[in-house]
C-alpha cells in the first residue's frame, strides 16, 4: 500500500511538474527558457522573463489551483453521495460559488476577512450556501433517497442560481457585462499573483482538512451505516468533508470562474488508472486536476492564437462527451 501510494504520487507529481514547466514556455509569443533564466539581463529588459513570469506563470499556477480544487471537491462529493456522477457542477455548488463571486464583482463589494478578499470570500459563501442544500440532500440520501433525485435537485438548483446570475447581469453596469460573461465561461485571465494568494489561503486550508478524509471516504462510499458500524463518525465526517469541498470549490471558482466538468472527468480518469482507494485517488486527483486544467488552458490559449478561448469551453468540449460516455457505460 505504501509503495503503491508513493509510486502513484511520484508519477502524477512528475506529470504536474512537466505540465507546469512546459506550459509557460508555449504560447503565441515564442520565448527561450535559457533567456528566461538568464540572470545577466535585467528583468526590465528581459522580455522572455516578463512573458514567462508575469504573463504566463500566474496563469499556469491559477490553472493548477483551480484544477486541483475542483477535482478534490469532485472526489469528496462522489464518495459522500456514493454517486460517481456527483461533482461541483452537477450539484449546483459551482453555480452557488459563481453567484457569490458575481455579486462581489458586480456590486464592487470591498471587504476582507483574515486576508481573504471579497471575491473569494463571496464565492466561498455562495458555494457554502449551495452546499447547505446539498447537505440536506445528503441527509436524505442517508435515509435512502435515490441518487437520481440528488442529481436532479442539483440540476434544478443550478438552473435557479443561473437565473439569479442573469438577473444580476441585467442590473449590472453595461461595461461589466462582457467581463462577467467571459468569466462565467470559466477563464484564467490571471495576470498577477494577488488573486492566486487570495485563493491559496482557503485552498490550503481545504486541502489540509481533506487530507484527514481519504479512509473515511472509502468507508462512507460503502454506505453510511456500514461506515458507522466500522467506527466512522459519519455525521462529523460529512460536515468536515463538505466544508473542505465547499472551500476548495469557492476558491477555485473565485480564481477561474465555474470551469465545468473538471470535478467529474479528473476523478474518473484517476480511478480508472489507480483503482478506488481514496488514499491514492484524492492526492492523485489533486495532481491530475492541476495537469488537466493546465493542458486545457494551454489548448485554449494556443488553438486559435493569438485569440484566447475561455478554458471552460475546452473543458466542456472534452467533459461533455466524457460525461455522456460515463452515463452510457453505467447504463450498459
Amino acid at each position: 500500500m505504501r509503495r503503491r501510494l508513493v509510486v502513484t504520487l511520484a508519477a502524477f507529481g512528475a506529470l504536474t511538474m512537466v505540465c507546469g514547466l512546459v506550459a509557460p514556455i508555449v504560447g503565441s509569443t515564442p520565448i527561450s527558457l535559457s533567456r528566461v533564466f538568464n540572470r545577466t539581463i535585467p528583468f526590465a529588459d528581459n522580455v522572455d522573463a516578463q512573458v514567462f513570469f508575469v504573463a504566463r506563470l500566474p496563469r499556469v499556477i491559477a490553472a493548477a489551483l483551480v484544477g486541483s480544487g475542483l477535482a478534490v471537491a469532485g472526489v469528496v462529493f462522489q464518495a459522500l453521495l456514493r454517486n460517481p456522477l456527483a461533482s461541483p457542477d452537477t450539484l449546483g455548488v459551482s453555480a452557488g460559488a459563481t453567484l457569490g463571486a458575481m455579486i462581489a464583482i458586480t456590486f464592487h463589494v470591498d471587504v476582507a476577512v483574515m486576508g481573504i478578499t471579497a471575491v473569494p470570500l463571496a464565492s466561498f459563501l455562495g458555494s457554502a450556501g449551495a452546499l447547505g442544500i446539498v447537505y440536506l440532500l445528503a441527509a436524505a440520501r442517508r435515509r435512502g433517497t435515490s441518487s437520481t433525485v440528488l442529481l436532479l435537485a442539483g440540476v434544478a438548483l443550478s438552473a435557479f442560481l443561473g437565473a439569479l446570475l442573469r438577473l444580476i447581469q441585467i442590473v449590472a453596469d453595461f461595461t461589466d457585462t462582457l467581463r462577467n460573461v467571459r468569466w462565467m465561461m470559466g477563464s484564467l485571465d490571471v495576470a498577477s499573483y494577488a488573486p492566486i494568494v487570495a485563493a491559496l489561503v482557503p485552498m490550503t486550508f481545504a486541502f489540509a482538512v481533506a487530507g484527514s478524509l481519504p479512509r473515511v471516504l472509502d468507508l462512507i462510499s460503502m454506505g453510511a451505516e456500514a461506515a458507522e458500524s466500522r467506527g466512522v463518525d459519519v455525521r462529523r465526517a460529512e460536515r468536515i468533508a463538505l466544508l473542505s469541498a465547499s472551500l476548495s470549490t469557492g476558491a477555485a471558482v473565485s480564481l477561474g470562474g465555474p470551469i465545468p466538468f473538471v470535478g467529474i472527468v479528473v476523478p474518473h480518469i484517476v480511478r480508472l488508472l489507480v483503482g478506488a482507494d481514496h488514499r491514492v485517488v484524492l492526492p492523485a486527483s489533486a495532481l491530475f486536476g492541476a495537469s488537466f486544467v493546465i493542458i486545457c488552458d494551454l489548448v485554449a490559449r494556443t488553438l486559435f492564437g493569438p485569440v484566447e478561448l475561455p478554458v471552460g469551453t475546452v473543458t466542456a468540449i472534452i467533459g461533455g462527451p466524457f460525461f455522456l460516455w460515463l452515463l452510457f457505460r453505467r447504463l450498459a
Partner: peptide, 25 residues
C-alpha cells in the same frame, strides 16, 4: 461488527480492499 442485508460499492474496490476496510477501527 455488522453484516448488512446487501452491500453495494459505489466504486470499483477489490475484494481484499473491501475486507481491509474492516481494519479501520
Amino acid at each position: 461488527a455488522v453484516v448488512p442485508q446487501e452491500t453495494h460499492s459505489a466504486f470499483d474496490f477489490s475484494v481484499l480492499e473491501i475486507v481491509l476496510m474492516g481494519r479501520y477501527p
